[in-house]
């Protein structure tokens, strides 16, 4: 049986379909899950509407819901199948989620980790640029490129943090905005805005100067801030030059002896001895 979910296939839609399928006793291997987005223009995949109604209440351990919500945000096409297989197995294997080393549970957690990491990177690497405001409140716009369908689930974070300003975060996987009253989400792919913000120059000054050239650890930096994010970070194009200059700056400092003269105010404070 083929189940086609609308657009990217969100959690509510998967849940409605999964409940109905479960109460009909449909085994996981008999279902082929596809989202419209992933199916693309496949002519032979005429959308089959998900089975509706007639679902008996389904109970699951409390930990399943947040896990399923998170893994349905993953961009891997097998996510719907994995979530349904877990749901199916949980009906008889009640302790399943306690066995992290089970192949399905381990995979679900790997998806969950990846979605969490993506969200965390969104919290970290969104860079707001100021745009002219229409009213009293200042207004900011950002462009971010997430790996997974995480934009809507992170609206709360930005609302809690940036309550007193208007903001819009545009991404290829939809956009969220806040105007002091409502959070809005739109799942249509957005375009990258072209905005300059003078504060970026101060931030770049800070980034270049907080870096310690004597402690170069490029691999460590790239593990945490992979290159795929660099194009949207105003500070990242400084990195190659900072790395290139680091060795001689370090050597320079090491080679240079302390100067024999001391500042005048030191003389006044402590006498001549450096």
């Amino acid at each position: 049986m083929r189940i086609v979910l609308r657009a990217r296939g969100d959690f509510e839609e998967w849940r409605t379909a999964a409940r109905a399928l479960l109460s009909q006793g449909t085994v996981p291997r008999d279902i082929e899950w596809v989202s419209e987005d992933a199916a693309g223009s496949d002519l032979f995949s005429a959308p089959a509407s998900p089975p509706i109604g007639g679902a008996a209440p389904v109970s699951v351990p409390k930990a399943f819901l947040p896990l399923a919500e998170s893994l349905i945000c993953h961009s891997d096409p097998s996510r719907f199948d994995l979530a349904y297989r877990l749901l199916w197995r949980l009906q008889t294997e009640h302790a399943l989620l306690h066995i992290r080393s089970d192949p399905d549970v381990a995979r679900a957690h790997a998806f969950d980790r990846s979605v969490h990491r993506d969200s965390h990177k969104m919290h970290a690497f969104v860079r707001f640029k100021e745009v002219p405001a229409s009213g009293q409140r200042r207004a900011f716009v950002s462009w971010f490129e997430p790996d997974h369908f995480i934009v809507a689930r992170n609206a709360g974070f930005f609302r809690r943090r940036f309550a007193d300003m208007d903001w819009l975060i545009a991404t290829p996987k939809g956009a969220i905005s806040w105007d002091g009253t409502d959070v809005r989400f739109c799942d249509a792919p957005a375009d990258k805005p072209d905005i300059q913000d003078d504060a970026d120059d101060l931030w770049r000054t800070y980034f270049a100067n907080i870096f310690n050239p004597a402690r170069l650890k490029v691999k460590m930096m790239q593990t945490e801030m992979p290159k795929k994010y660099w194009k949207n970070l105003p500070e990242a194009d400084l990195i190659p030059d900072l790395i290139a200059g680091a060795e001689h700056r370090g050597r320079d400092m090491a080679a240079r002896q302390a100067s024999d003269t001391v500042p005048k105010f030191h003389e006044r404070l402590h006498g001549r001895k450096p």
Partner: peptide, 24 residues
Amino acid sequence: ESGGLGSTEGSGICHAYAPDGRCI
């Protein structure tokens, strides 16, 4: 009270990494 700026939610966030591998 609403209307301010900022939040803290338990775990910290590293907004950038310098080439010395340190979190900013």
